[in-house]
Amino acid sequence: MKEFKIFLSKAAVLLIILIVSDVVIGFAITYVFNKQKSGKYFITTYALKNTNQDILVFGNSHAAQHFNTPLMAEKLKVSAFNFGVQGQSMLYYYPIIKSVLNYHKPKLIIMNLDCTELSFNPTNYQRLSIFLPYFHQNKYVDSSIYLMGGGEKLEAWSSLYRYNSTIGYILFNVSNKSENKSYKSLGFDPQYGNFCQKISMENENSISKKIKFDEKIIQSLSSLIKDIQNAHIPLVVTTTPLLYGIKQNAYRDKLKLLLMNSKVDYWDYANDESFVNKCNLFIDQAHLNKEGADVFTNMIMERIIKSNILNGSGTSANK
């Protein structure tokens, strides 16, 4: 019993030191975290707290690298911001857009979705770890963290765990060395170079034969559409160009049907002839370079102007 008491007292001392360290170091990292001037966390923090632009673009890297928001702001004479974050899915856009709608009413929301957006992919859930630094700051974010399953609900109580594997990234984005995905670039993440010299090893756009929809994603998309329409904000869903295009598939069909039933405009450029097989416009098989992004953004802007969305008419959603 005496031995057990000795052990317990030692363990208690260590536990107290650990809790204090967790709080103090966590506090210091949070301070530095909020000083970031670029990168995915800057974009996410900005969306959750400060955005006030007229045109908001949401999506993954296809949004971040393809929508030249500075060009849009200049040509359309409105403010715009690109909230695209690499590797993310509807599970990320949902809490972000929900949070934005709580405090801001933009003139237009562009939601860029992949052709396979509705498919089930466990990685989409793992990537929700991007929200860990925001634990207990926002109810939508907390619900997303819980979607990760496992022990996240418990582990997220540790401030240190919330910043797991992020220190290097945070320090880089505090140093202001990157202009991409920053306030200056309005979230745009331009890529340089082209795909003409590179050999495609396998078709990145090939779809697995086994079809598995993610009901959570379908529900989130439907819910977001409803919220945006109820707030009377014009919504356009887009799909960006692919070097080799994409064949009809069950995910794409379902997405089209869902958007049609919800009366949402869907601007699908996946097989657009202006881009298919134009390797000089791409950095890889699914991402445009800066030149391609400019061409694409100009096409989107023309369509925005033509459909007169920014003046409160034109899209199906507002009819």
């Binding site: 260590l14 030191i17 650990l18 170091i25 540790s158 594997s165 220190i167």
Partner: peptide, 14 residues
């Protein structure tokens, strides 16, 4: 001890 646990929490692949 503390440094080890902090290292695991901050830099471990969990």
């Amino acid at each position: 001890y503390t440094l080890t646990i902090i290292t695991i929490l901050l830099f471990g692949v969990l």
